[in-house]
Design a binder for these strands. Structure first.
Length: 408
RNA sequence: GGGAGUGUUCCCGAGCGGUCAAAGGGGGCAGACUGUAAAUCUGUUGCCGUACGGCUACGGUGGUUCGAACCCACCCGCUCCCA
């Protein structure tokens, strides 16, 4: 049987590991319990989390037992890694709510039945820690000098780092210790930015229990020029269909950089490597086909095959100029906007969220960025009759943002 | 606790007491070119108004002034030096 470690490696998922050979061996000889932590900083998972779940899934499929650790405790502190400023403190209610959202979304990807995977919350053990006790049992094992030298605090040494956040590493390390002692957890995985936190845990476990445990980080999902992937102007690309519609999700991948396509296919999809290697990305047409495949596969996994098909159909129709717009994003206008039997174009743009303000809408029109039912709008004062709206009109903003507008 | 700085529009950052909705860069948006890509070039980028204009903004609160992002006082946040 193929070793999962080799599979992860071949797909380019592995970034750093504490002891490659030992990890490889361990994964080959026994069913290993491992964990990945997720801090509940938002009410939906995003693309970055998705990568983590892909890894989790690979390992689960290979017979290992994942622990998805919801950071209901660590989120109270806030990970300073990679942040230039302290992040906003979340309330307990927000954190618990976010964790619940995570929990529901994760169940879609990972099989938690019959103990095949566990979902735990570190708030269960972190929130009630006794300060003095914790300092004596865990704090002793950490060297401040060493911590300060860690790469992840570098940017914070200039901007400032609060004691609260400084403790984050201890919290996460303690998690590993707790999981090792109570669930026989032997490995921790995480994004490459988590390296320092992970080693902290590995060392703590060794110092306290003498057990050798392992850490492994995987590649961060970044574009070729190093930017974090899954971020757009409007924020993150969410997995929650209410926050990022399946169509937008599809389009995000459909519009990805040429140079990132192969990498994304390897990292995020479950298409076999041989098949990916065979995908032609040398011509414009072939690259577009590959992007379409990528977008379809991911939408299918994250949402459903039906959603993926709809998004694909809609996109094909829109971009080939056909008029069918069954599945495109739509907006129902408030009837109160009707004045003298018509609605002003600027009001339509604002209510459909195609423009943030009327001023922006006016600019768009003046610059020729708005097309109504195939006709370029040139007059910002244009109105659209109520009858026409009742039938439904299609507005295009820029090259690829479409919206169907109807009157409620 | 003492001292020195600093806080500007999405971000960085410039900003003589009036001519500042505020230079410049980044980012965003749009146009051209393209392959629903990248790069490049152009325009644009507080809100309302077709426009003259009005309104809201320069950490907070007061004050000086005909007039304040710019001056003063106090407060808050952050950085650095000393303790």
């Amino acid at each position: 049987m193929e070793n999962v470690f080799d599979l992860l490696k071949a797909r380019g998922l592995v970034a750093q590991a504490t002891n490659e050979d030992a990890i490889r061996e361990l994964l080959a000889k026994e069913k290993v319990t491992f964990y990945i932590g997720f801090d509940a900083t938002a009410d939906s998972l995003h693309v970055g989390h998705f990568l983590q779940m892909v890894v989790m899934k690979h390992l689960q499929d290979a017979g290992h037992r994942p622990i998805a650790l919801l950071g209901t405790g660590t989120t109270m502190v806030g990970d300073p890694t990679g942040k230039t400023d302290m992040r906003k403190m979340l309330t307990v209610e927000q954190i618990d709510h976010n964790a619940l959202c995570f929990q529901q979304q994760m169940s879609k990807f990972i099989d938690f039945s019959d103990g095949k995977a566990l979902m735990l919350r570190n708030g269960d053990w972190l929130r009630n820690l006794n300060y003095i006790e914790f300092l004596r049992n865990v704090g002793v094992h950490f060297s401040v000098n060493k911590m300060l030298a860690a790469e992840c605090f570098k940017s914070r040494m200039e901007k400032g780092l609060s004691f609260l956040e400084f403790n984050y590493m201890l919290m996460q390390s303690y998690d590993f210790l707790h999981l090792n002692q109570n669930f026989d957890c032997k490995m921790q995985f995480g994004g490459n930015d988590q390296w320092a936190n992970i080693i902290g845990g590995v060392e703590l476990v060794r110092k306290v229990t003498g057990n050798e445990v392992f850490g492994l980080t995987f590649t961060l999902l970044t574009t070729k020029d190093g930017r974090k992937m899954g971020k757009t102007e409007g924020g993150a690309v969410w997995l929650d269909p209410n926050k990022t519609s399946p169509y937008d999700f599809f389009q995000y991948w459909r519009n990805i950089d040429d140079q990132d396509v192969t990498n994304c296919l390897k990292l995020l999809t479950s298409i076999p490597l041989e098949e990916i290697d065979a995908i032609d990305v040398t011509s414009g047409a072939a690259i577009n086909a590959a992007k379409e495949r990528l977008a379809f596969e991911l939408t299918k996994t994250v949402h459903s095959e039906e959603d993926a098909q709809k998004a694909l159909d809609t996109a094909r129709q829109l971009f080939s100029g056909a008029a069918d717009h069954e599945h495109m994003p739509s907006t129902q206008l408030d009837p109160q906007l009707v004045q003298d039997g018509a609605v002003a174009i600027l009001d339509i743009l604002v209510s459909a969220q195609l423009a943030a303000s009327k001023g922006e809408g006016r600019r768009l029109v003046q610059q020729g960025g708005i097309v109504l039912d195939g006709e370029k709008v040139t007059d910002p004062l244009l109105t659209v009759s109520a009858e026409k709206l009742q039938q439904g009109v299609v507005i295009r903003k820029g090259k690829k943002i479409y919206q169907k507008i109807t009157l409620a």
